[in-house]
């Protein structure tokens, strides 16, 4: 197109993304037994402990990690898990958790990026595990929100955000859990007022 166009031009890219074969049926080979009387924090810490060797393997293989946008270092994943667990259990959205991490975001936006760092850790862990193919977006979300303490913690934090009077908390709620997975409804409620404040266009 660069060689032939003589005016501003928009062309459809003719190549469609290839279908994902079987990735939607993916299941994590590592299971996390749920013990009813355990706190979210305890379950979360147990999960990251179980996944840590796999995540370390992926970091070593790739020579990099996307973990750490919050300011946490890779050896602080358990600290980060405890911070999210505390937020889920106590719902304090106005003070950043004091856990020894030099946070790069203010509350409540920090919550969004704690979720991101932990999801990155989980994704990097399953990338190293044996098994056929990589899971697609839906399979990943079905796993996170259907069978992990991380998903349960994010659901609990989302409820706290929904109940908070700060408009920024409502916005962060919409950015915390992928559409279709929040048990409390859509990130895009049918409200013009919400739309005016919501930068989630995903361009």
């Amino acid at each position: 197109m660069l060689a032939t166009a003589n005016e501003p031009t928009i062309d459809d890219y003719p190549i469609e993304a290839p279908p994902e074969s079987g990735a939607g049926e993916w299941a994590c080979p590592v299971s996390f037994p749920v013990i009813e009387d355990e706190s979210i924090t305890a379950r979360l810490v147990a999960e990251v402990t179980r996944l840590a060797p796999w995540s370390a393997e992926t970091r070593a293989t790739r020579g990099r990690t996307l973990f750490g946008v919050t300011g946490a270092s890779p050896d602080q994943v358990e600290v980060l898990a405890r911070a999210l667990g505390k937020l889920a259990e106590q719902g304090n959205l106005h003070q950043p958790p004091e856990v020894g991490i030099d946070w790069k975001f203010d509350m409540p936006l920090l919550v969004r990026h704690i979720a991101d760092d932990l999801r990155t850790f989980y994704h990097e862990a399953i990338a190293a595990q044996p098994g056929p193919g990589a899971p697609n977006h839906d399979a990943l979300n079905n796993w996170i929100f259907g069978g992990t303490a991380l998903g349960d913690a994010l659901q609990a934090v989302a409820v706290h955000l929904s109940a908070d009077a700060n408009p920024m908390s409502k916005l962060v709620r919409g950015l915390l859990i992928p559409e279709g997975y929040f048990q409390g409804g859509s990130a895009f409620p049918n409200s013009p007022a919400f739309g005016e404040n919501n930068p989630e266009t995903g361009d």
Partner: peptide, 18 residues
């Protein structure tokens, strides 16, 4: 290894970028 993402959207799969 020195690059991170602070894009706020949660609706898009980042595993391919990872």
């Amino acid at each position: 290894a020195d690059v991170v993402v602070s894009h706020i959207s949660t609706n898009f799969d980042r595993s391919a970028f990872q």
